[in-house]
Simulated scan of single mutants.
Amino acid sequence: MRYIIIGAGAIGGTIGGRLYENGFEVVLVARGAHAAALRTGGLRFATPEGVRALPIPTVTSPGEIGLRPDDVLVLAVKTQHTEGVLAEWAPRPVATDEGDPAGGRTAAELLPVVCAQNGVENERIALRRFRHVYGMYVWMPTSHLEPGRVSASGAPLSGVLRLGRYPCGSDDNARRIAADLEKSVFAAPVSEDVMRWKYGKLLGNVGNALEAVAGPVTGEERTALYRRARQEYEAVLEAAGIPYATVEEQTADRGDRVELQPVAGEGRVGGSSAQSLIRGSGSIETDYLNGEVVLLGRLHGVPTPVNEALQRLADEFARTGRPPGSLSAEELAALG
C-alpha cells in the first residue's frame, strides 16, 4: 500500500512520518510555505527520540501524482476544508498498469479514504463522493506551528488510531491499514463501531474552543464552563439516541501506551484549535466541534448556550486574527 497523506500538518505529518520511518511508501500533500519547506528540507519530525529530517515526497495537488490501485488516501485536513479537498481528489483516474487508466475509473470509485480527523461530519461528506470510506478515531498529542516541522510527544506509542468502515463494520482494507499502523509506533485497533468512538472523542473536543480563546482549561471558572459544555453535549446525544464511548472507556483503552514526554524545542502549545489561531490560518474547526453540539441541540430541542457562545467566539477570533487566549476576564465571566 502507498499512503497519500492529504494534509501534512500535526496529525497527517505524524502518521506519514511514522509510516515512512518504518518502511512504508508515503506521499505528503501540502500547500504554501509548508509544502515549500517539506520539498526543500524534508519533514522535520520531532519526537521524544529526537528531531530528524525525513525526505518524504511531497505534492501540492492531485494533478502532480498518478494514482494506483494500492493507494490509500488519508484525509487529515480540518473539516472546513474537507469538501473542497475531496472534490479535487474524487475524479482523478486510477491506473491499473503503468500509463493505463483503469477504464476511466476514479479515486472515488476505487480507493479507500480514511478520515483521520476530529468531529463526525467528515465521513458523511466523504461518502457523498467515495464508495470506500473509513472513520479514524485519533488520540495523538501533536503540534504543527511552523512550515516543515511537526512534533509528536506521545510515548511509548505516538497515538491511538482506531479504524473502522463507515458507517459501521470492518473489512480487509481496514485490517491491512491497521497492521501497517501497528508496525509504525501506533495502537490501531479495528472497530466495528468506530463512529461511537468518534462521538466519544468529541466530549473532549468541545473544550478546544475554550482553550483557544481563553487559554488552558484550568481554574474553577474555566473548568466549570468546560463541564457545562460537555453536559450539553451529553444531553444532545441522549436526546438523539447516539451511542458514544465514555471518557472512562477512552482512558482505559489508551492506558499507559500514550503518555506525554518532552520533545526538544517544544513546549505545551494547546490543541488543534489553538494551533490554528497561533498559525493565523484564518479559519478554525469549531463549527464542526461545538457546532455539532449546537446542530444536534437544535434538531432535538435541547438548549446549548455554552457551546453556541464558544462557537461564536472561536469563529470571531479566527476571522479577526485576535490572539489566542486573549479572552478577558469580563468576557469569560459573561459566558457563565
Rank of each mutant, 00 (worst) to 15 (best):
S158K: 01
S158T: 04
G159F: 00
G159H: 02
G159K: 02
V160K: 02
R162W: 03
R162H: 07
R165A: 12
R165C: 07
G169I: 01
D172A: 01
R176C: 11
A178V: 07
A178I: 06
A179R: 12
L181S: 10
E182S: 12
S184W: 00
F186P: 01
P189H: 10
P189C: 11
S191Q: 11
S191E: 14
S191T: 09
E192A: 15
D193L: 08
V194M: 09
V194I: 15
M195G: 02
R196P: 06
R196D: 15
K198Q: 14
K198I: 14
K198H: 06
K198S: 05
Y199M: 06
Y199W: 15
G200M: 09
K201P: 03
L202N: 01
L202F: 09
V206M: 02
V206E: 02
V206G: 02
G207R: 09
N208K: 08
N208H: 11
A209P: 00
L210N: 12
L210R: 12
A212G: 11
V213D: 04
P216Y: 11
V217M: 06
V217C: 08
T218P: 00
T218K: 07
T218V: 15
G219W: 10
G219K: 08
G219Q: 10
E220T: 14
E220I: 14
E221M: 15
R222T: 03
T223F: 03
T223H: 05
A224C: 13
A224G: 15
R227P: 07
A229R: 02
A229D: 08
A229I: 07
Q231E: 15
Q231M: 12
Q231R: 14
Q231S: 15
E232N: 13
E232T: 14
A235M: 11
L237V: 03
E238K: 15
E238M: 08
A239G: 08
A239T: 05
A240L: 06
P243K: 08
Y244A: 12
Y244S: 11
A245Y: 00
Q250P: 04
T251E: 15
A252P: 09
A252G: 14
R254H: 06
R254P: 05
G255H: 03
G255I: 00
D256H: 01
R257I: 04
Q261P: 00
Q261Y: 05
V263H: 01
V263C: 02
A264T: 14
E266F: 01
G267Y: 10
R268L: 13
V269P: 00
